Simulated scan of single mutants.
Amino acid sequence: MADRERNYCLFLDHRKYNRNIGCRRHDNLYGIAGGGTERRRWAVDREFYRTMRAQGDPMALPAFVVCLFFGWFFWNYHSGWWPWRGQLLRRFVKAPR
């Protein structure tokens, strides 16, 4: 059985432009091990954009815009003015066992 590489890039081909490395780092900074305030989320998104742009990826700007608009749903909030703590996504979707 072939060992498949996990795709960390939602809606993008993770094999092009070495995207999977940047997407994996971005996902880890968003998830349980990462998170923080809204200001931190924006910093993580900017870092992701810079990584993709440095690779010459034409999807850098569209991916950055999507992260800015929809990232709040996936971000692990530790504090701030949001009415919940943790990832809002986890309130609706159970993690696989």
Rank of each mutant, 00 (worst) to 15 (best):
M1D: 03
D3M: 07
R4T: 06
E5C: 05
R6I: 10
N7I: 09
L10Q: 03
H14D: 05
H14Y: 07
R15E: 03
K16T: 05
Y17E: 00
N18F: 00
N18Y: 01
R19D: 00
R19F: 00
N20C: 03
I21W: 00
I21T: 08
G22L: 05
R24V: 00
R25L: 09
H26P: 02
G31N: 10
I32R: 15
A33R: 15
G34H: 12
G35R: 09
R41C: 07
R41K: 15
A43V: 15
D45G: 05
D45P: 10
F48P: 02
F48L: 07
Y49V: 02
R50I: 04
T51L: 06
M52P: 00
R53I: 03
Q55L: 06
Q55D: 05
G56H: 03
P58T: 04
M59W: 02
M59Q: 04
P62R: 04
P62I: 05
A63M: 01
A63S: 12
V65D: 00
C67R: 08
C67P: 00
L68N: 03
L68V: 10
F69A: 09
F69E: 03
F69W: 07
F70A: 11
W72Y: 11
N76F: 11
N76E: 10
S79F: 11
G80H: 10
W81A: 14
W81C: 07
W84G: 14
W84D: 09
W84L: 14
R85S: 10
Q87P: 10
Q87S: 14
L89W: 15
R91G: 13
F92K: 12
F92N: 08
V93L: 15
K94R: 15
A95G: 13
P96K: 08
